[in-house]
Design a protein around this nucleic acid. Structure first.
Lengths: 343, 343
DNA sequence: CTGAAAGCGCTAACAA
DNA sequence: TTGTTAGCGCTTTCAG
C-alpha cells in the first residue's frame, strides 16, 4: 500500500506538500500539484483513513442510530437508511448502522467516547429521547429523523404529519365520508411517545373536529392480526363506518382481510387510505392502496446533507449557526381503495 | 476526552501497562489491573478508535456492500442487514453500509486502498461478481451473502435454494398439484446472473422432472404489474394451472390480484406458495401466504460471525484456514394459500 | 510557494 | 510483571 511519503518521494516534493495538495489548505503551484497528482495516480494512492482521522480529528464516519429489536426495518425506514447511505457516499462520508434506540444510552455514550463518529442521525425518535441530551453533551453533531416534543434548537427532518393527515381526511370527506375511523399504531407506541403515532392522533382529531365530525381512533398492533382486531373494534364503535384511515401498514393488510371476511367490498362499501406508505407496499394490495406516499429515501438524503453541512468547515457558518428543520410532505396518490361514500 | 496517558497517570502506571490491560496481550498483575480499570471507570475512558486503528492496523469496521439503486432494500435484505449490524455490535465491531454492487469496482478499490475496513460482506452477489477477485487482491477478508458460480475457496452464507424449491414442490405435489408454474425474478436478473433466480430455476426444473412433470417457469418484473403479466402468461401456457410457486414477493401480490380479477379463488382454485419470504410479508396477504420462511436476520448474523472469526487472531487458525460455507434452510409454513388440487 | 518537524493517541517491540 | 520508546500515516504549526 502506497503511503504519502511514497508519493512525496516519487514527485520529488516534501511530505507536507503532498498533504496540502490533498487538503487544499494552502496554495500549491500548478506545476508541483500536477506532479503530485500524477504520482498519486501512478501509485494508486489513497490516504489512509485512520491516519487521516487521527491527525485531523475528522473521521468521515456518520452513525445511523436506530433500535434493531425485532424484524429489522420496514420499507419506509429501509428507504431512509439507503437514502442516507447513498448521500453519505456521494459526499465522501460513510454511514454506519448502530443499534442504539431511544433508551440505549450507555452504548451510545461508549461509542461517543471512542470518537469514531463525526456526526449522527437518530431514527425512531421518541418525543422524549435520551439520545438528544447525551449527544449534545458529548459534542457530537446530529440530526433527527423525526422530532422530539420540543424540537427547539435541534435540527431535524421529519414527515409533515399534520398536512398528511389533513390531506387524507380532506380526500375522504370530499368523497362524502363522515364515518371515518383512524387505525393508528399500538397503545404501547402511543404511550412510549412515538412521535408519528402521537402527532397523527392529534392531527386526526383536529381535522375531524374542524369538519364537525367525531374523531374515532383505534390503536393496533403492527401485525395483520392486530389490524383485524382493530377493525372489529372500529365496527363496534362505528357500525356505519364507511372509511378507514391508517398509518400502520402491517395492520392495514389485516384490516383489508377483515373487511373481505365480512363481505365488505373495498372501495364500494368501505374506502381505505394508507398514510406514509411506500409505493411498493401500496402496490401489494388489490386493488392498489390509495395512499399518501412517503418521501422515502429523500428523508435520509436530506438529513445527511444537513448533518454534513454542519460539519464542513466552510458550511459551518459560526456567525449564524442556522438550525435547519425540514418537514417533507407525503403526496396523495389516489389508487383503487377510495371511492365516494355509499348511500 | 480522557486519553490513555490520563488513565496511566491516574493509576500510577506507565502508558503501556494501560494498553496491555486493554488488549490483554500480556499478563498484568491483578492489583495493577484493578487500579487501571478503576481509573478508566473514573475518567469514563474509552480508547480513541482512530488511534487504535492506526497503531494496530485493525479498524473494527466491517463493510456491507450492496447496490442501492432504486427503492432500497426489500424485507428480506433488510433483515440480513440488521442481523449483520446487530452481530457486529455484539462483537465490538461496526457495520458500514456501502453502495457497491457487483459492478461498482472502482468505488470499492478506492475504499479498499483507504484501509478503512477490516472485512467486508457482499450482498446481491452475482454468479460472476467482480468484487470477489478485487477484494482478494486487496487482501481484505470477506464473506458472501450469496454465492458465485464457482464458490470454491470463498466463504459464504446463502439460502439453500435447492432444498427450498424441493420442499415447495413436494408440498404442492403431495397436495395433488401437477400443473404448477414457477414465477421467478425478471429476465434481466436471470441474464445478469442473479444467483437466487438462476439456482431456483434449475432446482425447479430438477424437482419437477424428478416427478415426471413439465417445469414451466415464467419470469416477472419485481412489481405487482409484472406479477399480473406473469400470471397471464402462465395461464396461457398452462390453462389448467392449479398452483403458482413464486420467489418474487412484489410480483406475487400482482399474481394474487390477477387471480382475484379472474374469479379464481385462492386456495380453492389455485394454490400459491411463496419462497424465501419473511413472516411479516406472508401475513400481509389474505389469506396469509403459505411460504418457505427466509432465515432473515440469521443470515446476516452468521455471515458476520464467520467474517470476524477469520479476523480475530485467535480464530485465525492458520494451520487450517477453514473456509466456511453455510446454506440456511427456509422452513415451510403452511398458512392459507395452499390446499389440495381441485378435481 | 515549499520544507521540517511536532504531534494526534494508540500498539508492540525491546529492555529490564 | 512492568517501563521505555519507536513507530502507525497523516495534519498542521512554524520557518523559510
Amino acid at each position: 500500500m502506497a503511503t504519502m511519503s511514497d508519493v512525496a518521494r516519487r514527485a520529488g516534493v516534501s511530505l507536507s506538500t503532498v498533504s496540502y495538495v490533498l487538503t487544499g489548505a494552502r496554495p500549491i503551484s500548478p506545476r508541483t500539484r500536477d506532479r503530485v497528482l500524477a504520482a498519486m495516480k501512478e501509485l494508486d494512492y489513497q490516504p489512509n483513513a485512520m491516519a487521516q482521522g487521527l491527525a485531523s480529528r475528522r473521521t468521515t464516519l456518520l452513525g445511523l442510530m436506530l433500535p434493531m429489536d425485532d424484524r429489522g426495518l420496514g420499507a419506509t425506514e429501509a428507504a431512509f437508511a439507503t437514502g442516507a447511505a447513498a448521500a453519505a457516499a456521494d459526499a465522501g462520508y460513510h454511514l454506519m448502522l448502530h443499534p442504539a434506540g431511544a433508551t440505549d444510552v450507555d452504548a451510545l455514550r461508549r461509542l461517543g467516547n471512542r470518537r469514531l463518529l463525526d456526526g449522527a442521525l437518530l431514527m425512531e425518535v421518541r418525543l422524549d429521547d435520551r439520545r438528544v441530551p447525551l449527544l449534545r453533551r458529548l459534542g457530537i453533531p446530529f440530526v433527527l429523523i423525526g422530532r422530539t416534543a420540543d424540537p427547539a434548537g435541534t435540527p431535524f427532518v421529519d414527515i409533515d404529519f399534520d398536512r398528511t393527515v389533513e390531506d387524507a381526511v380532506e380526500h375522504l370527506t370530499a368523497l362524502g365520508h363522515r364515518d371515518v375511523v383512524y387505525v393508528n399504531h399500538s397503545v404501547a407506541d402511543l404511550e412510549a411517545g412515538y412521535g408519528p403515532a402521537r402527532r397523527t392522533a392529534e392531527a386526526f382529531a383536529a381535522a375531524m373536529r374542524a369538519r364537525g365530525l367525531p374523531p374515532v381512533m383505534v390503536p393496533a398492533e403492527d401485525t395483520a392480526a392486530g389490524g383485524r382486531r382493530a377493525l372489529a373494534e372500529a365496527l363496534r364503535r362505528v357500525p356505519g363506518l364507511t372509511a378507514v384511515l391508517a398509518m400502520n401498514e402491517s395492520a392495514l393488510f389485516g384490516v383489508l382481510g377483515g373487511l373481505a371476511d365480512r363481505g365488505l367490498r373495498v372501495p364500494d362499501d368501505v374506502s381505505v387510505v394508507s398514510m406514509v406508505t411506500s409505493e411498493s407496499v401500496a402496490e401489494l394490495a388489490t386493488p392498489a392502496l390509495t395512499s399518501l406516499t412517503s418521501p422515502g429515501s429523500a428523508v435520509g438524503r436530506l438529513a445527511v446533507e444537513i448533518l454534513i453541512s454542519t460539519l464542513d468547515p466552510e458550511g459551518a457558518d459560526r456567525s449564524a449557526p442556522e438550525i435547519r428543520q425540514e418537514l417533507l410532505s407525503c403526496a396523495l396518490q389516489v389508487r383503487g381503495t377510495s371511492a365516494p361514500a355509499r348511500g
